[in-house]
């Protein structure tokens, strides 16, 4: 069997200086820029008012009582359960007791919700705009260049990833096109940013997107009717089957330690 022919492509060293380096430097600079832009665009999280804080934390107290009920004695648990269930059902902890029973207003008309969405929009724009610009720039100037050869072999599946912009079927997968180099840097520069900007930077778009997804999840939560949340928590509390962690603890301890 003949050895597979090792493809050699003579490359102008200028490719390295005028394509590989510029793309890398530009990517790093955009990352840094994005970091500072997102710091500038950040809006301070809106302060909760005291009744709102009371509402969320009282609900949390109910959840705590339900999940950790084993830590307290049955009689203490019964007292607390009676108190909380009654209070939850009466809506004692509601931030806006007068809104009880009314349907929630449309989030689109609620100015507070709009503000949150604006914040998300700003973050998205700060990510999308530079990304589009750079992609266009690379496409316009550097498309179709093969700029480097990876020092290790790869399976053909990587072809689409590494050689986008170069329409050659038989080219060895180890050759990387300029557009692909852009993608590689886009996803792989996080350690570099960590090094120059500190670990909690906002330079990488992937982490940004993940953080945004979490924020989105957090934002959707309070949109629910707090009264309904309290009601369902009261129901959950009512059906808790209580056991006491101190039941038989002395035997457990004795069998463990002697």
């Amino acid at each position: 069997m003949a050895q597979p022919v090792v493809q050699t492509i003579p490359r102008d060293p200028a490719l390295f200086y005028w394509i590989l380096l510029p793309i890398t430097v530009v990517m790093i600079l955009t990352g840094v820029l994005r970091h500072y832009a997102s710091i500038l665009l950040q809006t301070a999280p809106k302060k909760q008012t005291l009744p709102q804080m009371r509402q969320t934390r009282s609900l949390l107290r109910g959840v705590n009582l339900r999940t950790n009920s084993h830590a307290i004695s049955p009689s203490s648990f019964a007292t607390r359960r009676n108190y909380l269930v009654t209070a939850f059902k009466d809506g004692t902890f509601l931030a806006e007791p007068e809104n009880r029973g009314k349907p929630r207003p449309n989030p689109m008309t609620d100015p507070a919700a709009m503000e949150g969405m604006m914040g998300m929009m700003k973050g998205n724009v700060a990510m999308m705009v530079p990304q589009t610009l750079i992609m266009g720039w690379i496409n316009a100037f550097f498309s179709g260049f093969v700029i480097m050869r990876l020092p290790f072999p790869l399976t053909p599946q990587f072809k689409a990833m590494l050689q986008s912009g170069v329409g050659t079927r038989d080219l060895d997968v180890r050759w990387v096109s300029s557009l692909s180099w852009y993608f590689l840097t886009l996803f792989g520069l996080q350690p570099v940013y960590n090094f120059i900007l500190g670990s909690n930077n906002a330079a990488n778009q992937m982490t940004q997107q993940m953080a945004q997804a979490q924020v989105g999840a957090g934002m959707m939560g309070p949109e629910q009717d707090p009264d309904k949340l309290f009601m369902s928590e009261a129901e959950n509390l009512e059906v808790v089957e209580h056991y006491y962690i101190l039941d038989g603890v002395e035997e457990r301890l004795l069998s463990k330690l002697t």
Binding site: S73, P74, E250, L253, L254
Partner: peptide
């Protein structure tokens, strides 16, 4: 009725006392 636990047996109290003293 109240669900409170019965007091421990004399034997286990004694053993726990010994254990605590030793420890």
């Amino acid at each position: 009725a109240t669900g409170d636990l019965a007091p421990p047996t004399l034997r286990s109290i004694q053993r726990l006392h010994e254990l605590a003293t030793g420890k």
